[in-house]
Design a binder for these strands. Structure first.
Lengths: 334, 334
DNA sequence: TTCGCTTGACGAAACGTTTAGCTAAACGTT
DNA sequence: AACGTTTAGCTAAACGTTTCGTCAAGCGAA
């Protein structure tokens, strides 16, 4: 592999001149510049980011740690963060924590070892684990996105979860439903709690009673949601609508409804949080609350970039607004 | 950020001893080992992969370049490659080429600059672009997965695309269909071509005529597929079944069928290549040909790992078998 | 005691960059 | 002509590791 030394020798200049040519930090005469570029071309020289990073004490890598890349919401987030990073000259090291806080911490150590200039994490743990993230003494800037509780000593970028649940619930209520069930995520997660509160608040505002028996607390995954919905569908009186607080649980719901031989929205109305890329491919189209995924991604990256550039201000919290996407899965009760 | 020097000073040993303790390459007495570990703990020392990589002339990074991370098939591939890599002590730099061969090449240059020990690429281009990948003179080992044409001078890991199309088509034929349409991907892509050939061969074997008017050539994307299917559904005599040669086109198909007020499989049967994580969430369940995603991922990584370890053998081609997953989207014609 | 041998630990030289500091040539002033 | 000033380009010292060769101490054998 050719090095600067080789380029310098071939071009008949010093390595400092090669370096200056490449970085543009010092003036190099057009004549030498040309010779250097020709030598680079001829040797197929590519700079060595490790050497340069070592010397400069930083890298153009950022870490990105997500709980589960197959969840389309996270996939899209990764996608947007990656492309924003690329536009800004950064490469992304991807880590999948698999919803395991221990692995998450381990991956962040990896990022630090790789000298990542900073990292973005979508915390998978409960509030306790998140608090530990906040005490990241590593010196590597860290930004938490999506499921960051209040009070982390970090920049955080989150959805207004209460509002998201609120507009979903309000939409259901506006069709005249009164027995509305909810699928809640894992109780130790901040996101679940917020969405649950938003749901309750919306009911209360409309004067509709909340019944604990209609609240199913699961784990944000497909299977648990299916079982929960089967139980709901078997109960009497059956709820006429279900608010589903994330996308994976929506899949479980669809499975359960099909299995019970019922149909949406004739027998039961549903609205969920998290839009799907394929929400338009199913019949009926699913009414969902869309997160501003791209805006979350960009805000998170830009926060991180600011920290990398040396911003030392107080931790910021950016809260973004959801948007209701009305399709056909919510209708008036039978 | 603490360095080995700091650790050495605090432990009262040389940096060589610290290095030996960490790498285990030389024997260190238990006593010193303990002092070193204590110092590491106290200082919160983390090794600097750039320095070590620079010295050793290699890194524990691998590049992974995919055309489009939001396609669930690629998402899953990324997921499995990432976890296999992690198990083997590698971190993954993710690059999304966005189906652009220029960007793909650029990303591979990035990987090289970052001193990736090797890269896995899912080529997005046609045969011409792929051939260029084969002449990668960079010295960085490269493995192509999923859509690699024959004759690349690279290790390749691919699905048996002809067989995949064959078993899908045979399944359709076994229900008695005779007017079978096909949605083909972009014609310059090897994968499309192979799947098309598999389709034709299966028809021929059963003595069913192939009609060019029932072959719709698209771009593997949702929108084009929807339009193509709308045209097919409007044609008379209408085809009774459609073979869809990838997952995104399947979404387009579902949209078109809903838009035309028809239903699967009553009015039209469908079978597609690429299973979806949510294929079970739609009604009716989609009959698909599943790619052995995990096996592809593992093979690709293991090939790369062998090259990184110094394997200098001839380029290998690993061909893996598809599997038919029967659900409810294919029935007898009306 | 002396000699070689083993062994745990160390010193110092790389790895490929960046960059501070220097040199010498070229120029404009007086 | 002598002087300072500018400037293109160079030299060499880092950056934090790994690793080769060295060294001193401890040991058994002669």
């Amino acid at each position: 592999m050719a090095t600067m030394k080789d380029v310098a020798r071939l071009a008949g200049v010093s390595i400092a001149t090669v370096s200056s040519t490449l970085s543009g930090r010092n003036f190099v005469s057009p004549e030498l510049k040309e010779r250097v570029l020709a030598a680079i071309e001829e040797l197929g020289y590519a700079p060595n980011a490790m050497a340069s990073g070592l010397k400069r004490g930083t890298s153009s890598l950022i870490g990105l740690v997500v709980p589960d890349i197959t969840n389309p919401f996270f996939t899209e987030l990764v996608h947007h963060i990656q492309s924003r990073a690329l536009e800004n000259g950064f490469n992304v090291i991807l880590g999948v924590s698999d919803n395991d806080a221990v692995r998450e911490a381990e991956l962040l150590r990896h990022m630090r070892t790789q000298q990542a200039a900073g990292s973005i994490v979508i915390p998978c743990g409960g509030e306790e684990d998140c608090r530990r993230l906040g005490q990241n003494g590593s010196g590597m800037p860290l930004v938490a996105a999506d499921s960051a509780p209040l009070g982390m000593k970090l920049d955080t970028v989150v959805l207004d979860n209460r509002k998201a649940a609120g507009i979903a619930t309000a939409h259901i209520l506006s069709h005249g439903h009164e027995r509305i069930a909810i699928l809640v995520g894992p109780s130790h997660r901040f996101v679940s709690h917020e969405r649950f509160l938003g749901f309750q608040a919306a009911l209360e505002q409309r004067g509709v009673a909340f019944s604990e028996s209609l609240a199913k607390r699961g784990n944000f995954q497909v299977d648990a949601a299916r079982e929960a919905v089967l139980a709901l569908l078997a109960s009497r009186p059956r709820p006429t609508a279900i608010f589903v607080s994330n996308n994976l649980m929506m899949i479980g719901l669809l499975q359960a409804v099909a299995q019970a031989g019922l149909s949406v929205p004739k027998d039961i109305s549903v609205v969920s949080i998290d839009d799907f890329p394929w929400a338009t491919g199913v019949t009926p189209g699913l009414t969902t609350v869309r997160q501003p995924v791209k805006a979350i991604a960009i805000s998170a990256f830009d926060c991180l970039a600011a920290r990398i550039a040396g911003d030392e201000g107080e931790p910021r919290r950016i809260v973004l607004d959801p948007e209701l996407v009305v399709r056909q899965s919510c209708a008036a009760p039978a």
